Simulated assay, not measured.
Amino acid sequence: MLAGGHARRYSRRHRMTALLCALSLVVLTQTPATSVSFDLRSLSEQDYRRWDGVELERKVALRLIQEGFAVVSPQSPAQLRLRVVRTPEGLGLEATGPRQRVEQGVRVGRGSLAELHLEVAQKLTEMTRAVAVPPEPVPAPPVPEAPPVVESAKEPPMEVAVAPPPSTLELGLGMGTLWRGAGSKVAPHLLLSVRRGLGSFGLDAEVGLGVAREAALTAYEVQGGAFLGYRLPVTERLHLEPGVGAGLVLQVFRLEDAWVSDATGTQVSPAGWARMKLRWRFSERFAAEARAGLGLVRPVSHVREGETLGARGRVRVETGAQLSWGP
């Protein structure tokens, strides 16, 4: 026995299939038409409800019938088959005919549900025309004493190019901790990041601010770097993202001793990082990330009359969590 949600979904689909078949019979009685099936069964129950699958099936079927195709149920034999699948970027559209198969992608979350349905119906109609085999022309009866009619060559089927995955821009803001080597204290760390992604790869720009306070020394460290990362899907919403990067660390320090002539100063050092992110996308636009990084930087020591006031080691360990936003 089907569960309540699945039973309602099956009932609505059954009524929709009956309506489409009735409309298609009208088309079939007028002219010979190419049969087309439209399949949404690969979508999960949650995605089917989120994008109103019943209304999407109705709009796609009506559009195909207007174009002269006969729409049948996914279980029935059909000359052309249309299918919608879930992808990390949104929806994937597939059209399969007797000679070729074409695909396109649709990004979700950028407009209203009606705009999404219109875009899917338009693209599926174009793809159906592309994979459909044109019917053979009926030869005209011979006309006496008339020159032979030369038939024009058939136009090749239209090729629908698959659009490359669009690049995305993500913004992130988070807090964490910074450990700067042996003998130093764990300091708070503020991080701002921007990611430009193309598919699974991404180029990040990060800016961080850390503050270390000692008894006789206060040091502010501003770091900036560029990272190359690769996003590995664990589940549909959970991803791992390893990455490597390089940049600079600027340290501005101030000595608390008022008798010192040079109480402030700066140090600039090159740095490199290896990092790992665990990312959970909990909505269409927002995601939470946990971050851990291991960096190498030039060590710095602050000494006064043989006494070490503060030091930064060669190894720095960063941890933190942040919230990111992106389409």
Rank of each mutant, 00 (worst) to 15 (best):
G197F: 03
P139S: 05
V133S: 11
A182P: 09
D204G: 00
E206N: 02
S193G: 11
G199Q: 09
S167D: 06
K154L: 15
L191V: 12
E155K: 13
E145D: 12
V143R: 13
L198V: 13
L178F: 15
V131S: 08
L171V: 13
A161W: 10
A146R: 08
G176T: 01
P134C: 03
R196K: 08
S200T: 05
E159W: 14
G208M: 05
L192S: 02
V131H: 11
S152R: 09
V162P: 03
V160R: 02
R129D: 03
L191K: 07
E136G: 01
S193V: 11
S167N: 06
A187I: 08
P135D: 04
S200A: 15
W179V: 01
G176H: 06
P139Q: 02
M127N: 03
L171E: 00
G176D: 04
E145Y: 13
S200W: 12
M158E: 12
P148Q: 02
P164C: 04
L203F: 11
V160E: 07
S193C: 07
K154F: 09
V186H: 04
P134D: 03
T128A: 15
A205P: 00
A187T: 08
A163T: 12
S200M: 09
A153I: 06
G183E: 06
P142S: 10
P148G: 04
L198T: 11
V138L: 13
P165F: 04
K185S: 10
E136K: 08
